[in-house]
């Protein structure tokens, strides 16, 4: 059961964080959209808060690094090229699909948004299928 305790705790914290964002700023906490608007279309009006959010996530990362460095362990035994391809797919796919695990998976599903429910089911099923197929192909050593 200890296996489930930390994921649940982390999940509750994530739920609280996105609820604060909604209650205080009236916004969805969608990380891919925030990165896209901050980095790729930075001229968009009223986009400074996105850089604050990104800075906050990096600060959170630094806190983890001090308090819980093992949070950044457990890399996959894949090649660097696999990682590059994966990054390109995630970057392209999240913009085309208007969201990722945070915006669709947490915020959208909690609002019972049909678009987010479809998106979440799609990317989880695609992930499951990809693990299955790529293992057969020997991508994961």
């Amino acid at each position: 059961m200890e296996n489930y305790y930390l994921p649940l705790l982390g999940g509750l914290l994530i739920g609280a964080a996105v609820s604060f964002m909604l209650y205080l700023n009236g916004r969805v906490t969608g990380v891919s959209g925030i990165i896209y608007d901050a980095v790729v279309t930075p001229t968009k009006k009223d986009s400074v808060w996105r850089w604050y959010f990104i800075s906050g996530m990096l600060i959170g990362g630094f806190i983890l690094r001090i308090v819980k460095p093992e949070a950044f362990s457990g890399d996959l035994p894949t090649s660097n090229w696999t990682l590059v391809v994966a990054g390109l797919l995630v970057g392209f796919g999240t913009v085309l699909g208007s969201g990722c695990t945070s915006g669709h998976g947490v915020c959208g599903t909690s609002r019972l948004s049909p678009r987010s429910l479809v998106a979440t089911i799609t990317f989880i099923l695609a992930g499951v299928a990809a693990v299955f197929v790529f293992r057969k192909l020997g991508v994961f050593l």
Partner: peptide, 11 residues
């Protein structure tokens, strides 16, 4: 888009 994201997420 979600499908493409899911594949990259797994990789």
């Amino acid at each position: 888009g979600s499908f493409i994201f899911g594949v990259g997420w797994a990789l």
